[in-house]
Design a protein around this nucleic acid. Structure first.
Lengths: 183, 183
DNA sequence: TTGCTATCCGGAGAGTGTCTCCGTATCGTC
DNA sequence: GACGATACGGAGACACTCTCCGGATAGCAA
């Protein structure tokens, strides 16, 4: 890639991250192009669809996911608290941008999605945390990772779309945790 | 209201119901107007926003909700099956139109929403079903109706946005049910 | 440094959707 | 039949997406 092309690409991603954080994933792409000081054509050449741009933005986010899973695995305390800790982190991670929960959770388990790699990162992280609980025999036998991601993602989606009280979110996550753990 | 106005209004609702069923709630309103044989102005005069039109469409749907709740209350069997029966009906009811689950669940508990009346109908129906279980002491003490609607609505939203297997949906509803029932 | 070409840029503009405005038509009443 | 009140409709302003192509430029070779 030519140096100027790389420069423009980086600049677009940087601006888009800011604009999307402020206005959500539905923000005008022409606005992103304008703020980045490039023409619309340049933006669309680098990122043919909105999703490919979103994917590029999320690159740095992957590291955070790994880190969060690591912390949850190392979490001291009861199984229930450990699981809830991960759920909270999971919701926070996918809720960084408005519209994120819906976008990510919808793509979960759908192959060929432009953000499939990001979903995979989340699934793997979740599987790690769930794996620890499973080893300890704390989890019900038929628990599927994707399903858990969808359940928690569903809560995050609703919370994202209407402003739900954090305490209410926690309480919903508790219901899911209790439904997953052996009694 | 003048007779011709009433005629046009009815016609718009009728056409919109069909178009929305086929194309989802994002369908072009100008298309609806055209298919209804009226100008865009006429449509927007009767329904200033998309939501007010959606609200009008859902009028007949209210009856179905009442009926479904009645059936679930009369459901023979264990508490868990009774609850799951309602969850399944609930998901089906809000998933009649593409985009419905997100729209309805987002508005749940948000006052002033254009579809608040529809949410209330759903909440009341859910409260009735949950009330029966509560009387029997089958429910955990701190269960909130809106929260349950959000949890189940979250599952429906995800299922609606990516094509999730009905069996997987059922399984997620089981997790929620188990999280809500006393153990 | 100069010249050449593959590569990239920018923005005009077509296509589509939302929503408003206002001249015109129709209804319902007297 | 006449006359307000009410409703209609579609042109058009505005916003967003995405494409196309003439022009600019980077990077390389001599």
């Amino acid at each position: 890639m030519r140096a100027d092309a790389q420069r423009n690409r980086d600049r677009i991603v940087e601006v888009a991250r800011e604009v999307f954080r402020e206005q959500g994933y539905d923000a005008s792409l022409d606005l992103v192009a304008k703020q980045a000081g490039v023409g619309a054509g340049t933006l669309y050449r680098h990122f043919p669809t909105r999703d490919t741009l979103v994917d590029a933005i999320m690159q740095s986010w992957v590291d955070r996911v790994q880190e969060a899973a690591e912390k949850s695995r190392a979490h001291e305390g009861e199984d229930r608290e450990r699981l809830l800790d991960w759920f909270e982190r999971y919701v926070a991670l996918i809720s960084l941008h408005k519209g994120g929960p819906a976008k990510i959770t919808s793509a979960m388990g759908v192959e060929g999605s432009p953000i499939a790699t990001k979903c995979q990162v989340l699934k793997n992280a979740s599987a790690e945390v769930l794996g620890v609980l499973e080893e300890r025999g704390a989890l019900r036998p038929d628990v599927d990772t994707v399903q858990v991601c969808r359940l928690v993602g569903g809560v995050a989606t609703i919370a994202d779309q209407s402003d739900v009280d954090p305490a209410a979110v926690h309480s919903m996550l508790e219901v899911i945790a209790d439904g997953l753990l052996v009694r």
